[in-house]
Structure formats: C-alpha cells, structure tokens
Amino acid sequence: MNEDIRPNRLLQALAYLVATGTSLLFLYPYWWMLVSAFRPTRAILSDPLRLWPETLSFRIFSEIGRIGGVELSTYIVNSLLITTLSTALGVIVTALGAYALVRRPKAPGFSLVRYGFLVTIMYPYMLLVIPVYLVMFKLGLLGSYAGIILFLALGPLQFFLFEQFFRKIPNEVIEAAVIDGASEWQILTRVVLPMAAPITATVALITFLLNWAQWFPIMVISRSPDTYTLPVALLSMNSELGTNFQGIMALAVLTTLPVALLFLFAQKRVMEGMAAGAVKG
C-alpha cells in the first residue's frame, strides 16, 4: 500500500533538480559579488560571467580606504558601535517593557502604550523616518550617535518574541515566589530573567542582524558621513558618478560578510526566532 506516498525515482530527481537549481540561483549574486570584488573593473566589463578572479589581490580594500572623505575604518567602527549599542539598549528596554505589559495588562495607561506601539509598527516605516527628523531636531539629537541608537532600539519582532515568552510563564511560578515573600524586583531578577536567557539571546541575535542592515534612519538623522554605517556608505558610493565597480562590490562584501557568517553560525536560532516572532504578530 501507500504507493503514491512512497516517492518515485523520477519525481525525486525532479525535486532535487528544482531545489538545487533554485538554491544556486539564490546564491549566485553572492558569488558574483565576491568574485567581482577581486577583479579590476575593466576585466569585469570584458567578461562578466567569469567564475573565478584572474588574480587574488586584496588591494581594492586599501584603495577604498576613504569614501566620501571619511575613512573606511570609521564606517566599520560606526556599524559595530551603532549596531551593538542599539541591540543592547533594545533588548533591555523591550524585555522590561514587554514584561510589565504582560504582567499588568490592566494597569492604567498600559494598554495605551501597547496600542501606541502597535500603531507605530503599522506606519510605513520610511515615511515615519521623515517626521522623526523633525523630532530629532527638536530634541537636539540630529547628527548624534545617541539619536541613531535610540531610534533603532525598538522593533516589532523583538517585542512580539518577548511578549510571547512572558505570556507562557505559568502563573503558579510567579505566585509561588510572591507567597515566599519575594518583591517584584526579586521575582524579575531571580525567577524570570534566568528563565528568559535563551529568548534574550535569540532576540539579541535577530536585532543585531536587523540593525546592521539599517540605512534610511541613519542617513536621515546624520548630519555628515561621519556617523554613516557600512550600508549607508555603500549607498552613497553606489550613487556617485564615475563607477568604481570593483570598489562597490568590495564594500558590498564588507557589508554582507559579517552578518552572513553570524547567521550561518546561528542559523537555527535565527530562523526559528523569526518565524516565532512573526507568528505572534
């Protein structure tokens, strides 16, 4: 029995063909980017399809040492600094906020905060950034790292992941701690946070990946390229006249490689976390 459930050979070969073909098509842009970063612009023009660079030279990375009058190292440091700090801030603020909203959903004002947040994430993000410019101006944060980091701290996926996790903590666990005379601060630091370590790691990882990719708010809040990150530098280099094609590809590699490696290193956690956070929303 079960004849049409048992895979037949031809169908199986076809499935592998489709899956492999599609996967290679999805991966090809990465390979082309990588190879192009090591080939002189002229060589790419004459043979765009070459699968391996003529010579393996890293000189291009020193040639793009300055972009738009700013050292390449500045963009790298900015990317690391802004992404790390906004991730740390976002994780702490979102965890505490989601925890409070889950524990006391009926406290006066709390549902207002929650709705305010939900409306914000429905607003077309790119169009939110524009009035944020005015807000940053009024707060005197324009052109500052603080303004960029504060704006990048909150995100929907992060909030939903924490909210979902805190909702699943059984009431009995918390009640037992209350009966034992624990204060709310003790419940948080000794009962809830130790349980929340894995979800915190997941949220931190995903936030890092998402914030590394940010560009528009950083471009809008910045007053000069001094606070640009790698993606913003890449965009301005791509819009410049006179194409330094090889340089653009080298910068694209620098922008992509760190997060691609981080993702491959922690792929299970990232994919499961993103699916879980989305299912809640």
Binding site: I92, V93, T94, L96, G97, A98, Y99, A100, L101, R103, R104, A107, G109, F110, V113, G116, F117, V119, T120, Y123, L127, L128, I130, P131, V132, L134, V135, L139, L150, F151, A153, L154, E184, L188
Partner: peptide
C-alpha cells in the same frame, strides 16, 4: 511596573506616536 515600562513607553512616544501625530 511603571518603572519597567517607562523606557519602552518613552521610546514609543518619542519616536513613534509623536512623529506620527506630527506628520
């Protein structure tokens, strides 16, 4: 709990609700 929620609420209002109303 108001203390816990305060930073989250502040960021939501400053960079979410306020700019939307401003817009």
């Amino acid at each position: 709990f108001y203390l816990f929620v305060a930073p989250f609420a502040a960021l939501t209002i400053l960079f979410g609700v306020w700019p939307i109303l401003l817009s």
